[in-house]
Amino acid sequence: MKAAVLVFPGSNREGDVAQAIELVTGRRPQMVWHGDGDFEKVDLIVVPGGFSYGDYLRCGAMAAQSPVMAEVKKRAAQGVPVLGICNGFQIVTEAGLLPGTLMRNSHLKFVCADVHLRVETSQSLFTNRYQAGQVIKVPVAHAEGNYFADADTMKRLEDRGQIAFRYCGPDGSIVDGRGNPNGSSSNIAGVFNDTKTVLGLMPHPENAVEPMFGGTDGKALFEGMVEALS
């Protein structure tokens, strides 16, 4: 699997995700600067976390209009898989590759913690190494992770199985917003586009791939992509 990781001024998790990809593929991904309108053909494009353009205007708003994102939109339309993590999730929603948007956390605080996620489907190139309903533990670190979409969009996401991950309690329960760290609608932590070739999520699976750092539950996401895309 050949991967590209985008780098914006203010990105800060690009090294983490590059490392996670290298861990499962044995191959360093290509790092692509935001001003590059063209880059090598790859099997996967990753939009990493951080604070692109200082989060000016709205998180991800400026990055979504950068030259590299124009190219990403073109390739996504051709079916090239795109993974947006944290700020990357904000960027891909601002770019219109995913429905909805990420708002300020309902309690207005930056949240940095391990959270439990329920995998909602294993039927995607990103989640095929998980079981539907499986509970995993990965970290979050954000101030704007409160997913919001209008009622019609929410219904469509539910009906079409476009919800990838939900925040939950350790037992997988989402009753009364259990485990929800940011006020996100329906406990949504990650969503797919309608072809399930674009995934955006707030948590950081790339920071849960080595036992030394508290868990390896994120590793299966990368292994699953390798399996699907190699």
């Binding site: 205007l57 709205r58 400026m62 909805g100 948007t101 979409a149 209008d150």
Partner: peptide, 9 residues
């Protein structure tokens, strides 16, 4: 529409 506002919200 393009940048200044996010018309979703």
């Amino acid at each position: 529409k393009k940048l200044l506002a996010n018309t979703v919200i």
